[in-house]
Design a protein around this nucleic acid. Structure first.
Lengths: 335, 335
DNA sequence: CTTAAAAAACGAAACGTTTCACTTTTAAGG
DNA sequence: CCTTAAAAGTGAAACGTTTCGTTTTTTAAG
């Protein structure tokens, strides 16, 4: 049905090996090159990736394992990444593991079974067990967003400086005279939560403000969680002058909660949110937010992985830490 | 490196053909079956999908082309779909075409080049040109969410009864005594927008309420769009008693706008939104929304495609239309 | 013109399966 | 215990590439 390299060979009178050479970027004599190009066009030839994969043991496919696809942070990164990888001829297989370690492990096995050339993972499992097979088979792995100590000698990673992000946000609040500051963070056992909380504590310390554990709520990074946490926080601590919410979904929930409770931002409460430009732009007052360079994360991940795929593993894992930006809006009041 | 069927044959003393038979679900003599299973486990054998794909011309991969990955409607459907397909051994390659016809076309070519066994598409291009190559090569196609007349004799589709969805929402408003009802719909040229608007008009007509074009805003299905449209609508038509917003992102934007403008729902304005259970649950008052059966869409799509892949194309396209549900909350006031 | 070196082209073997046409083994019926 | 049909197992030829070791052609220097 579909044309093969053989058809091109026949059409041009050249040998199979020569066509293969051309297809893989080798140089032919001008005259032949033109003939081959014409034949390829005429017969609508496309490389058969399966034959190629069989011979070369490369699938030109990378796998992505993420906790939840229905999450803006994840999709934006994936979109950026996928664009680049696709441009380089790689396809991307996405596996949503529903924040479940068992499913994450299955996904890794599935991808390895599919013989992906590389794996990109925003890990759920904290000891990296699921990626052991990948390591054994020397499949390049790039971690996103969360560090896994057990894998640090092998996997590359692209992270955010979460502590600095939180620090700068909280310092902004402190500089504006706030002292009673609440924070809504993610689950206790998630890397980013810990780091963001650490940055929060750091900032307070450096400004000699006492750290009050009561003002920390561990939520779950969801819309609902943000909403409930905000309500709880405001009910139990009406004396708060500012609150810092540490991801997009929770920020959205918090904003809705505040709006509903009739709490005026920033007159009655200052708020710093996270991540989403759109939301920040439309909210009135314009929200002050910590923005993560999502596209940059995606493209760095793609870049690193492509590098590993083309040049092989050097033995030295790359670790890239990107900075966030504090986008000043009008949701923080000067006290 | 990795074990092959040959290794299993050697290990068990059986022939390659027999192992292949086993691997593909054939039956062996009890004794041999056990031996093969043991050998597979011992040598950690996995089928080489590339060799298999080469021989059988099946990649066990399906491609998905969507307008934007950063969209809850899309991700929820994909998640459901992917789960099922993965369970059946298929991997899913997702291509985000950024709502661009040219990129959509490229994505289709890319996927066909990757020799996917099937394509799932929420189409941007309205004349289905991008899928012509798929049709020529008889690659099964399942369309989601939007119908493409040019493909209706070939592609299967899973749609929502958009008109009925809008009708039921608007009838609910009418039944509650509302007469001045606004609607925020998506872009004029998108299938779902047209249908939802048609349902709106229908409902008005059946209740002999005059249709006022002024009360229709064509927005863009984004958070920002919903926000701006809501503001515009309320400014130019303060006499509205109810408004119907026709997707999740715009509903979110509209709710934020209303909250900010200090408009009490439902006391001053009744609102019916779309799609998101989470949002509906947390908003106060609980939002009345039209919910689409996202999981059901995803699983139907997967089911249909699997059927096509296993049983071949029958010549008769399947068209499944699913119903929405009107989730009654407290955002509609009885006039 | 030769000749040597460089460039281009070639033939054939492999990659790991599936599948087809056959042969051997097993089980059932008389 | 023989016959026969069904079940189980086999050998070999593909599938469409890449790659290696060779051969042929081209180019440039002498």
């Amino acid at each position: 049905m579909a044309a093969t390299i053989k058809d091109i060979a026949r059409e041009t009178g050249l040998s199979i090996a020569t066509i293969s050479k051309y297809v893989n970027g080798g140089t032919l004599k001008e005259k032949n090159r033109i003939a081959v190009e014409r034949a390829i066009k005429k017969l609508d030839y496309h490389v058969n990736e399966y034959a190629r994969g069989l011979k070369s043991n490369r699938s030109r496919t990378v796998g992505v394992i993420i906790p939840e696809l229905s999450n803006l942070f994840v999709t934006q990164i994936i979109t950026a990444m996928e664009d680049i990888l696709r441009q380089h001829g790689y396809s991307v297989i996405i596996c949503d593991c529903h924040t479940d370690e068992k499913l994450e492990c299955d996904a890794a096995k599935f991808l390895i079974g599919k013989r992906v050339d590389g794996i990109i993972n925003m890990p759920v499992c904290r000891d990296g067990r699921h990626l052991r097979p990948a390591k054994e088979q020397k499949i390049p792995v790039v971690l996103i967003d969360r560090s896994v100590p057990e894998l640090s000698s092998y996997a590359d990673s692209v992270l955010i400086d979460n502590a600095a992000a939180a620090r700068s946000a909280v310092e902004h609040l402190l500089d504006n005279g706030h002292r009673r500051i609440g924070i809504i963070v993610g689950p206790k056992d998630v890397f980013t939560s810990q780091q963001r909380l650490a940055g929060f504590v750091d900032a307070l310390k450096s400004h000699s403000v006492e750290y009050d554990e009561q003002l920390v709520i561990n939520s779950d990074y969801t819309l609902h969680g943000g909403y409930e946490s905000m309500r709880a926080m405001l009910k139990t601590h009406p004396d708060l002058t500012a609150i810092f919410v540490t991801n997009y979904e929770m920020t959205l929930g918090a904003v809705i909660a505040a709006n509903e409770m009739g709490i005026k931002i920033p007159q009655e409460l200052s708020l710093i949110g996270f991540d989403n430009m759109d939301l920040s732009r439309i909210a009135h007052p314009r929200l002050t937010i910590v923005t993560q360079p999502l596209e940059e994360i995606g493209s760095q991940v793609a870049r690193i992985l492509l590098d590993r795929l083309e040049n092989g593993y050097t033995g030295v894992p790359m670790k890239i830490t990107l900075s966030t930006t504090l986008q000043i809006g009008a949701s923080v009041r000067q006290l």
